[in-house]
């Protein structure tokens, strides 16, 4: 078997009696794009929350490259290279776009106390240039000095993606990266994600848009009612009757 980067082992999570996740066992292999699909409220975002330390699982653990992530502080998990792109944009509204991207780059570099904090911006030109590059890749190059709060919803999603990519993660967790984007932007994002895929970055992507899923995913896990009901290649999943029943019934593929 290929190298497993992320291993979610026997995770349960319930909210006041609601079983949001049950018996979750999931392996993500190095370099693959692993899609997680499922109806609304299936527990997809909750699964990512468990991975990045926002939620603690009731039982089970999450292993990343041999390290147990369960119980670790979110910033430590990020420092290990697990980066999440949020479903609802979690940007810094009062900062400019450029600053929004520079912050994660500096965070990756200076997670704890550094005297270099007090240096001038001009000594961080490489950080700035890197941030500019990422913004340009995402088509946000024109607005680098605009306040993030003024962006449209679609552009906020792109900025969110830029903030994640800027950290050059080892494992990128994408929560519906194209939701709220126009078709044109969605296609651009797919192209970008394909490019990243070619670069070998391991990704977990949650997506409702089947077009996006089938153009990117190497493997798919289908989540319904907090359980993984089916796992396999896009072809296998497409033809699985359980999936049709639980999920595909409500959407045309």
């Amino acid at each position: 078997m290929e190298n497993t980067v992320l291993h979610v082992a026997d995770v349960h999570k319930s909210f006041a009696g609601l079983h949001a996740l049950s018996d979750i066992d999931l392996s993500v292999r190095e370099g693959e794009t692993h899609a997680i699909i499922g109806p609304n409220g299936a527990g997809k975002s909750t699964l990512l929350n468990v991975c990045i330390g926002r939620l603690k699982p009731d039982t089970g653990h999450v292993i990343f490259n041999g390290e147990n992530l369960t119980g670790r502080a979110p910033h430590e998990i990020n420092q290990l290279g697990v980066v999440r792109v949020f479903q609802t944009p979690e940007i810094f509204p009062d900062l400019t776009l450029l600053e929004n991207v520079m912050v994660p780059i500096l965070a990756k570099r200076d997670g704890s106390f550094k005297m270099s904090w007090f240096r001038r911006f001009s000594s961080e030109l490489n950080v700035r240039n890197k941030a500019m590059g990422v913004l340009q890749d995402l088509g946000l190059g024109e607005f680098t000095n605009a306040m993030a709060t003024n962006l449209s919803r679609g552009d906020k999603r792109r900025l969110e993606l830029a903030m994640g990519l800027a950290q050059e993660p080892k494992l990128l967790l994408l929560d519906e990266p194209t939701a709220g984007m126009a078709r044109h932007d969605t296609n651009a994002t797919i192209d970008l994600l394909k490019k990243i895929k070619a670069g070998g970055m391991t990704k977990v992507i949650i997506e409702h848009d089947m077009h996006v899923v089938f153009s990117l995913a190497d493997r798919i896990s289908v989540l319904a009612g907090g359980r993984i009901i089916c796992q396999g290649t896009p072809e296998e999943v497409k033809n699985d009757p359980r999936v049709k029943e639980a999920y595909l019934g409500e959407e045309q593929v």
Partner: peptide
């Protein structure tokens, strides 16, 4: 800038490393 980012969205700061 980091301090302003904390003010702007402290939760996000943690998930930013």
């Amino acid at each position: 800038m980091m301090l302003k980012a904390i003010k702007s969205n402290q939760t996000r700061m943690a998930y930013t490393g």
